[in-house]
Design a protein around this nucleic acid. Structure first.
Length: 276
DNA sequence: CACGAGACCTGTTCGC
DNA sequence: TGCGAACAGGTCTCGT
């Protein structure tokens, strides 16, 4: 479930509490880890030792990473395909996919649930080593139109694959990329260096509009994995194969690009428009 | 450099 | 109803 809006929603909820005790200020007494491969760095034994008695200072987000600053070190969590992170009250029944549990001094628990076990957890002194490999934040001040334009032109990749490349731009995944390309009326297979100035401006706006709408809806809930948001009700193309395009009525098509299901309107998003 | 295929995992849904 | 195939929010590595 986790693209930028979902991760942002999780971070805000943990930070503010939202009816539950806020995470900042709480102390992690220890962690229970039942799927050791979730711990990417450091070695699991070191992780267990160093996470003890750490106080949480803040919860934030960079790209699709949750960034939990501690009084010593920083916890990075990547939810990948099926991860979720939430706090539970004392005595809450254990769910089947809660493979890592952080025990808090309040007797609440911070639980990392991950059915597919693709998620990763890092405990680092210098999180920049990982976070600096990410491209700009789409909703931040460094994502300027001029910068976006020059970087698009310096590559010749399919635009959808490039937008999903986290080192190019941090936070877009399969859902929000399809939705943004639809909004900008750009075919997902167009080469990044062939986009016109007008298309780039449309896309730049569409990316931010789509992500902001997603955040406003607290992200998207799909299937059984994430139940927090409602953006799925605003999907225009994602998982709407065969349904009429809301702009022109043409049935939405699904193709495979870079091994990912890709949804678009074959009429609004033309592949062969830039020349002749 | 850019792409496709295969891995990593498990659960749900689809098609016959 | 049953059973295998296809599919799922992500990313890494390898071969071409």
């Amino acid at each position: 479930m986790p693209e930028l809006p979902e991760v942002e929603s999780i971070a805000r909820k943990l930070n503010d509490g939202n009816g539950n005790p806020p995470l900042p200020g709480q102390i992690i007494t220890h962690a229970t880890i039942s799927w050791p491969r979730h711990i990417a760095i450091p070695a699991v034994s070191t992780f267990r030792r160093n996470i003890r008695s750490r106080m949480v200072e803040s919860v934030g987000r960079r790209g699709k990473y949750l960034v939990i600053k501690l009084d010593r070190g920083t916890l990075l969590l990547h939810l990948r395909m099926s991860g979720d992170l939430y706090i539970t009250p004392p005595g809450a029944a254990k769910g089947p996919y809660e493979h890592t549990i952080f025990h808090l001094d309040s007797n609440w628990q911070l639980r990392f649930s991950d059915a597919r076990k693709f998620g990763k957890i890092y405990l680092l002194n210098s999180p920049e080593k990982i976070l600096d490999q990410l491209g700009p934040e789409p909703l931040g001040p460094t994502f300027t139109l001029a910068n976006f334009q020059s970087r698009l032109r310096s590559k010749k990749r399919q635009i959808k694959a490039l937008l999903m490349d986290q080192s190019f731009l941090a936070g877009l995944g399969n859902i929000y990329t399809d939705e943004a390309l639809f909004l900008a009326k750009i075919h997902p297979r167009l080469r990044s260096n062939t986009l016109t100035d007008d298309q780039i401006k449309l896309l730049w706006d569409a990316i931010r509009t789509t992500l902001e709408d997603g955040i406003r809806a607290n992200g998207a809930s799909i299937d059984w994995v994430y139940r927090g948001g409602s953006f799925q009700n605003q999907f225009k193309v994602y998982q709407r194969t065969g349904e009429p395009c809301q702009r022109c009525g043409t049935p939405i098509e699904r193709i495979t690009l870079g091994q990912r299901g890709t949804h678009f309107c074959p009429s609004c998003q033309q592949e062969l428009t830039n020349d002749s």
